[in-house]
Computed example of a mutant assay.
Amino acid sequence: MTLDPDQTGPIAIGGKAREWTATVVGAHRLREDLTVIRLIGEFVPFAAGQSVEVRTPQHPNMVRRLYPALPPSMDGKLEFHVRTVPGGWCSGSLVSDTRTGDEWRISNPAGWLAVDPEAPEVVMVADGVGLAPLRALLLDMSRREDPPRTTLFVGGRYPRDLYASDMLHLLTGELPWLTVLPVVLDDEDPVRADNWYEACRVDIGFRPEEMIPGSLDEVVGRFAPLVHHQVLVCGGAAAVHATVERLVATGTPPENIRYEGF
């Protein structure tokens, strides 16, 4: 999926431009390069797994496309996971400068990440903040009477990149049909400290022995072919493309795979 950071203009519904407003109620800096932003406002009619366009006070004339990490909520709750993109001044200011009380304008839900109602088993692959839409889908699936058995691979370069390990650990305890497999390229964090990580460190999460070493595409490829699974992949473009190519090369039917990279 290709996004144009200079695109402007709200969605037109029935020929009439439409935006929804939401107010930031919390901006939680979890890493030096990552913030979880929570908002409450008007109901936004998106589907779990989709992305939306946002305008913020920091860049009122610039549109950025983000993925809600919660399914649609009638009480207007929204959550976004924002990570600094190298060289990306817009994402950097969202991570460092978002404040409680900021008003966001939201428009144009789009995307095709979704879990088919008849999928017998599901595999999800999240690179970094690509976890956000997959988490929204997991919470949406939890409302079903009989959710499909689901395996979620979450990947990062270092263990501390797995920013939601505590949330995922708790989620597996609540959802017996969910298995989470953490994947890291390096099994030790870098020597350089991340003060934000140290400040919010908790004891709940993945133990070192639970983490699978390797890249996402390598590790997921070991489980292929995924002939009877629906596969959803989301994250950085390079990791997504490598994972999809590995899956197809190892026998997973392309029609079984949905993916979005950014």
Rank of each mutant, 00 (worst) to 15 (best):
S73W: 10
S73L: 10
D75R: 12
K77I: 12
K77M: 14
L78A: 14
E79C: 11
F80A: 06
H81D: 05
V82P: 00
V82S: 03
V82N: 02
V82K: 02
R83W: 03
R83P: 06
R83K: 13
T84L: 14
V85H: 13
V85D: 11
V85C: 10
P86F: 09
G87P: 07
G87F: 09
G87M: 09
G88W: 10
G88E: 11
G88R: 11
W89M: 14
C90V: 14
C90T: 15
C90Y: 13
S91E: 07
G92P: 10
S93I: 12
L94A: 06
L94M: 07
V95M: 10
V95S: 07
S96D: 13
T98K: 01
T98Q: 07
R99S: 04
T100S: 12
T100A: 14
G101D: 00
G101W: 00
D102R: 00
D102Y: 01
W104G: 02
W104F: 13
W104H: 05
I106L: 08
I106S: 02
S107T: 13
N108I: 10
N108D: 14
N108M: 12
N108E: 13
A110D: 12
G111K: 06
G111A: 05
W112L: 13
L113R: 04
L113H: 05
V115R: 04
D116K: 14
D116I: 07
P117W: 07
P117Y: 11
E118R: 15
A119P: 03
A119H: 00
P120E: 14
P120R: 12
V123T: 04
V123Q: 01
M124D: 02
M124N: 00
V125R: 03
V125E: 04
A126P: 00
D127F: 09
G128V: 02
V129P: 11
G130C: 07
G130V: 03
L131H: 07
L131Y: 03
A132I: 03
A132T: 03
P133R: 00
P133D: 02
P133T: 03
P133E: 04
P133N: 04
L134N: 01
R135C: 03
R135I: 01
R135E: 04
A136T: 05
L138I: 04
L138F: 01
L138K: 01
L139Q: 07
L139K: 06
M141L: 15
M141C: 12
M141H: 10
S142H: 04
R143N: 10
R143I: 08
R143E: 15
R143S: 10
R143C: 11
E145S: 13
E145R: 13
E145I: 11
D146M: 10
D146T: 12
P147C: 04
P148F: 05
R149G: 11
R149L: 15
R149F: 10
T150F: 00
T151I: 06
T151D: 02
F153M: 09
G155I: 08
G155C: 12
G155D: 09
R157Y: 12
R157T: 15
R157E: 15
R157L: 14
R157K: 14
Y158V: 08
Y158F: 15
Y158K: 10
P159Q: 08
P159K: 08
R160I: 08
R160M: 11
D161K: 05
A164Y: 04
A164M: 09
S165T: 12
M167E: 15
L168C: 01
L168A: 00
